[in-house]
Computed example of a mutant assay.
Amino acid sequence: MLQRRFFRIGAGVALILLIVYLGTLVDFIFTPIASLISLTIVPLLITAFLYYPLRPLVNYLEKKKLKRSLSILLMYLAVIIVLAIFSIIGWPTLRDQVSSFIENAPRFTQSIITQIQLLQQNPTIQQYIPAENNQELIAKLTEYLNTIFDWLSVHISSMFSFISNFVLVVATVPIMLYYLLKDDKRLSPQLLKLFPAGHKEDGKAMLDEMDDSLSSFIAGRVLVNLALCVLLYIGFLIIDLPYSLLLVFLAFFLNFIPYIGAILSAVPVAIVGLIESPAMGIWAIVIVIIAQMIQNNLLEPIIFGKQLDIHPFTIVVLLLVGGDMGGILGMLLVIPLYMVVKIGIVHIYGMYLKDKMNHNFEDNPNKPNKDSIFKL
């Protein structure tokens, strides 16, 4: 029996590999699909990031006897007002800081090396860094800094590249978001039609768990990151840190990445502060640490309704894979995608076991009643 099962599994794996190989031979079919996905991924991502935070507000207004469509339009009006204020006050500054950062990035390395050389003249520092190691240390540091600035320049440019498709985003996001919010209660029944008749309740439980997990992760993280960015921006303004709005903008997105995001957002802050002076770099890091402590110890316990049920090692592996395949966008998407896939696999496997148990009881009616087993 074990041999038959082994050969069945082996045949299934071989068939999957054969299908994948044949798929690579008909790329004229999959290329348009890949182009469609790459074109719509940003609008879909923006829609999801707006849908989960806005849905509770729309539901609240609906409970106050407002029509759902009117509640959505009121939310749209509030979002438009916020965007209009940002476009007048914040966007010109952010645009100028992005252009200046990308333009001056090649010169940042030399500025940091100059600051470090000045710092090495301090007698206290010279005790820990012998003079004969200075050149080797500076050479390695220059190499690392060039790599970091190249990475930052490329990814900052890619994060703002969707502005070139601004018309597409403006044309699609409001429409998709409107119908998602309006037909929110109809979406689950439509998806339940995909499940067999005997698994409607199991399917509903799976969809509800997926929705709760995504809502907790996205909506909670949006609120936490907004509060964190306000704290960071106030602190950066106090110490007059250059590129403060750009650094806060990066921190908002990077902190969606668990564990690693806090480190990634702190690196450019430390570098920009060090370009000005060692004291500015130290104060910038102090502000980041204080803001992160407030976030972890005060904001997250209040805002988050549910923590990630994912082992930290798994998260690190997922982030490495997502970053390698899709850069920052891949790292942002990999955790929610894994959550959905994990919940789906667990529930589908549970449905399989349930069907198998029912089949065994039907074939062996002399066995104890299955209800009595569940009560044990």
Rank of each mutant, 00 (worst) to 15 (best):
L332M: 09
V340D: 09
I343S: 02
A291Y: 00
D324S: 15
I348P: 00
G330N: 00
K342T: 14
F313V: 11
K342P: 14
S372G: 13
P365S: 03
P312D: 15
D363W: 07
D355Q: 05
G327M: 06
K306S: 15
H347C: 04
V346H: 11
L332C: 06
F361Y: 10
G323T: 03
K370M: 15
V288C: 07
L353W: 03
S372D: 11
L329C: 06
F304Q: 01
P365W: 01
V317A: 15
T314Q: 12
K367I: 09
V346T: 09
I345A: 07
D355F: 02
N358H: 03
P312V: 11
I287K: 06
N296P: 13
K356R: 02
N364V: 01
N358T: 01
L332T: 05
I302F: 08
I345G: 04
L298W: 06
P368M: 14
E300S: 12
F304V: 00
G330S: 00
E300H: 13
L320N: 04
V317L: 15
Q292S: 15
I373Q: 10
P365T: 01
P336C: 09
K367H: 09
G323M: 03
N366K: 09
N364T: 03
M331E: 00
K356M: 01
V286H: 01
L320H: 03
L329N: 07
N296F: 14
T314H: 13
H359I: 06
M339G: 12
K306Q: 08
L308V: 09
V346P: 05
V341L: 14
V288L: 04
S372M: 13
V316E: 13
I287C: 05
P301L: 08
L332P: 05
P312T: 12
H347L: 03
Y349G: 03
D355N: 05
F361W: 14
I373T: 08
D309L: 10
I315D: 09
P312I: 12
D371Q: 09
L337Q: 15
G305W: 04
E362P: 03
S372I: 10
M331A: 00
K367E: 08
G330H: 00
S372H: 15
P365R: 01
L299G: 06
H311N: 09
G344H: 10
K370D: 15
K306P: 07
N358K: 04
I348H: 01
G330I: 00
V286Y: 00
N297S: 13
P365D: 02
L299N: 08
V340E: 12
E362Y: 07
M357K: 05
I335N: 08
Y352K: 02
P368A: 10
V341F: 14
H347N: 11
G327N: 08
F361M: 11
Y349E: 07
V334I: 10
